[in-house]
Amino acid sequence: MQRKYLSLITVMLVAIFFSSCQDKEYALPLGKTGLNNDCIKRTLGPNIVGANIEFAYAMALPASEGKIVSSQVVATIAGATGTYLENRSFYTNSSGVDVGITVGSASVTTDVKTMVTFTKDTCAATLRYFYTIPEAARGGSVSFKFSATASNGQTVSYDMGPYTITTMDMKLDLVCTDNKAMYLSIADMALYDAAGAAANAANIDLVYLYRNIAGITFTHALVSPAASTDYLPGVTLPTGVNKSTKMSKTWALNDFNLARLQYGIYIDDVDFKVLDFTNAPNFVINLKAQAGTWVETADGKYRAYIYINAVNNTAPSMTVSIKRYKMK
């Protein structure tokens, strides 16, 4: 019995040995025939109204079968002004720089369709598509159908999406200037001087000021008009400017869209929804570049994130960028 098993195992081992040592004939892989395409989305993070969604659409067919005649993108919602399909095909050179080669005429956008007609005899190209998110897409979603046509009559298409478009707004690089453009309105996403603030008193949420006070660190500050006068030294508020805005200071929350730095941090709609402003103060002082503050307006209508891009102590000013989410 034992001997029988031993012989069986030996036979099995020999069989495994032979099968593993058998050489397989190598054959060159055959390329795909016909017109083929592929697409990737290049932009990351939330899709914000007014900003771009960028895609790279690649199409190719064997040179012997023909050339590419046209390429087009159809969006479910027409893009805003600035939407276009590149007429250059890009490759990355040895230095890592993207180099564009013109392959067709400038794109033509008609309603939801953006099209490039090829003018060069080419059988392979990668075109970039920049979709500027329109106001009509806010809070909704958008999808895209990329397609290409070859001279042999073949057509291919590639569906992308749907992509959710955020509800929030964004405003970049507002320059707050001490004693001048120092009244910030979250509702208007704008800065006002004293006269402008008086005219828009109901919309003023914050006052920017810079103070260099010996013995304490005050420097750049964003203060609610209703905050203690201890935090508004030397400020005479225009008539009617009296809101109390809740705030929560942050540090190094370098949102990519606002900071435009190397950090892959994105503030999205959901981040505003989960904020807790219970016991939050109505002022923040000692602000530096790369700091920021979450904000909730007095009426609870808006929540925002104000990012400090830069500060200037010599000519007191502060550059801020804002993401704002409408709560009600």
């Binding site: 304490i216 660190t217 005050f218 500050a221 935090y231 929560s248 200071k249 016991n279 939050a280 103060p281 002022f283 002082i285 000692n286």
Partner: peptide
Amino acid sequence: VMFGTDLKN
């Protein structure tokens, strides 16, 4: 603590 510190948080 520094002047202006939010003591509640």
